[in-house]
Amino acid sequence: MKTFLFPLFGAAAVLAAGAANANDRYAERPPVVVSPDLSAPWVLQLGHAPGIVRQSRQEVQPQRRYRRLAEPDQLRTAAVQAPAKRMVMRPQIDPIYLPQEVAYDGPQKPGTIFIDTRENFLYLVGKNGKARRYGVGTGKPGFEWSGTHKITNKRVWPDWRPPAVMIKREAAKGRYLPTYLAGGMENPLGARALYLGSTEYRIHGTNQPWTIGGAVSSGCIRMRNEDVVDLYERVNVGTTVVVL
């Protein structure tokens, strides 16, 4: 009987020692390594996007990790830099399209949004001959329009339901759009949307900020996410929007 028990107690001791060594090995957890691929321009956008983003089958990109910034002030001021050896180069926006205060002597009343589609600027008219100016992307050839509307709705991280005519038009080009895309970092409407009248046009953010300053949209007014968040906080439903 003693001969039979000895191997069992010996094996138990070996297992206990092995468990202790394993616990010692992981007593200090290894540091978390964050991917350095943080250089894409759209990292400077709000986080906490609702819903699950479903990408188009034709546009699935390799998954990357991005840093998300939760507060609007961080969104406007933070800069994220990646190591040079991993930096992903993107076209840079012309500084002329960054927000700035300018003189304004036009006919629009203070509080009005005025959009110059020829120069690709959006003006929020202020008092005392001043206006806050933002760079925008406007309708590409064949999609230009003008008119006056009121802001009828405001949405945070809006979802996207492309019109049937757009889905058909893009399919003819071999680009297949989803019928629905939840709000989020990959959504082309970006962080905020201001809906114009009863039209399908919006002033909205973008996940392609390098396109600002060009004729690039299907009629919507496109802004950097940082800028549309700023504008969103300054205007209310009922604000007049003049597009020329």
Rank of each mutant, 00 (worst) to 15 (best):
N207T: 12
G106Y: 11
A164S: 05
V125K: 01
D230W: 03
F4E: 04
P36A: 00
L44C: 04
Y232N: 10
A12F: 04
P62E: 01
F9E: 06
R68C: 06
F114Y: 13
E119A: 13
F9P: 02
V228M: 02
L15W: 09
T211W: 15
A78L: 06
Y97D: 13
E144D: 15
V156E: 00
R67Q: 12
P83V: 07
T179A: 05
R132S: 03
S198D: 11
R133G: 06
A193T: 07
R222M: 14
V125C: 00
G184R: 05
T152F: 12
E226S: 10
I221Y: 11
R192I: 01
Y180P: 00
V229M: 03
R65I: 12
G147T: 08
R192E: 01
D159M: 01
I203V: 09
R67Y: 14
D73E: 09
F143W: 13
F143P: 07
R169E: 11
N21D: 12
V136A: 09
G219M: 14
V102G: 08
H48Q: 03
P91A: 12
V80C: 09
G129R: 02
R224E: 07
V165F: 05
Y195P: 01
A13K: 09
A79P: 00
G183I: 00
V102P: 09
V243T: 11
F114V: 10
G137R: 10
T138I: 13
V14L: 15
G174V: 08
S35M: 04
R132K: 03
T152G: 15
Y232Q: 07
G10M: 10
G10T: 15
P91E: 10
D159E: 03
L44H: 13
V235L: 15
G137W: 11
M87K: 15
L98S: 02
F6Y: 12
F6L: 15
P83S: 12
S198R: 07
G183Y: 02
V156Q: 00
T77I: 04
A82W: 01
V237Q: 08
G135V: 04
K140Q: 14
E233I: 05
P7N: 09
A40Q: 12
Q55E: 05
M89K: 12
D230E: 06
A12Y: 01
I167P: 02
K2D: 10
A193S: 13
W160L: 03
L98C: 01
Q58D: 15
A40T: 08
R76S: 03
Y201F: 15
L75E: 14
R202G: 08
R54A: 14
T3D: 09
T240E: 10
M1K: 09
V243A: 04
Y123T: 12
Y180Q: 00
R192K: 04
F9R: 06
Y123P: 13
D94F: 10
P31K: 02
E226G: 05
L44D: 11
E59P: 00
G139V: 08
V235H: 07
A78P: 02
P141L: 10
P178K: 03
A193E: 10
P72T: 02
P83L: 08
P95H: 06
I212W: 09
V243I: 15
V125A: 01
P99M: 09
W160E: 00
W145D: 06
R234E: 15
E144L: 13
N23I: 00
K140W: 09
L98H: 03
T152A: 13
I151N: 08
R202S: 08
E186F: 05
A12G: 07
Y97F: 15
V43S: 01
M185H: 03
K85H: 12
G106T: 06
G129S: 01
P158H: 00
